[in-house]
Amino acid sequence: MTPTLIQTFTLTPSQGAILLLCLLTPPLLLLAFRWKRKLSSGQREISPDWSIPTIDAQAQGSSLFHTWTPAVKIGSLLIVSFLIVALHALFWSAVGLAFALLTVHLARIPWQRPLRRLAAMSGLCVLFLLILPLTSPLRSGDTLLVVPLLEGMPLRLTGVILSLTITCKAATVALLMEPMFATAELARTLQGFATLGLPSSLTQMILLCHRYLFVFQQEAARMQRAMRVRGFVPGTNLATLRTTGNALGMLFIRSFERTERVYEAMLSRGYRGAFPATSREKIAAGDLAKAAVSIMIGLLLLVLDRLAPTPRF
């Protein structure tokens, strides 16, 4: 039963369309990406293209993010990310999202990459956007939104706002990853992390993982091909599970053997537990200025979020 102090607000068709568009953007993005992938892979090859995107593919450039020393850039953008995640209001979260879009634009990264990243996380956002408006608990003073043609499924305004806020903040952080990681070679980025205090053994592991991810992917693809040319068609049966288990086990053993061989190759070239140190990058005044501006923007958003009145329906 609906509590007595609940308000009901019937949206006009245009308001309803805008709201639905906001809620359905992530699932549409996900569907569009899947359709595009199917279209591009279906024509030429039987299997889809599972190639791993190279994290630092756009490392060569001259934007203000490319020229920013990685340690300062990562530190600053991480702080900005935390500040934006701490926002409460949908309006200021949306402003944060606009700021993230601006950074991607300024980093001169092809939009396909950030869109791919957003599509990857849109599955989680879809859950929030579809479930929270229908299920968030109603409290006294809450508003129910009635969308034309969907009168039987009134949406909780608090749920709509909460789900959109979460989506905005998640998209902001995902977008900030691009200027943070894609605008310098991975080795420089990891050196930046090391400067910020990340243990060197961890950065070495990430570097090696990134390199051998591609080798293992090629091995897995070759094994998958070998299975296909002998008639293997994956299904939902015990035989498929057994075959897949065998193949994964074989890949694991071979990966383990490769790690031993790589380690031997490293030892044979003088490795003694640490990658040889290269000269550390110097921090220029320009780096600090960029850091100050970006952190100020983050702080300003947080202050406005806490103190300034936000627009209401």
Partner: peptide, 17 residues
Amino acid sequence: RVGILFQDPDDHLFCPT
């Protein structure tokens, strides 16, 4: 002082570039 080239070149190339 003693350099060894193993069979599989992927074992030797473990850096990003």
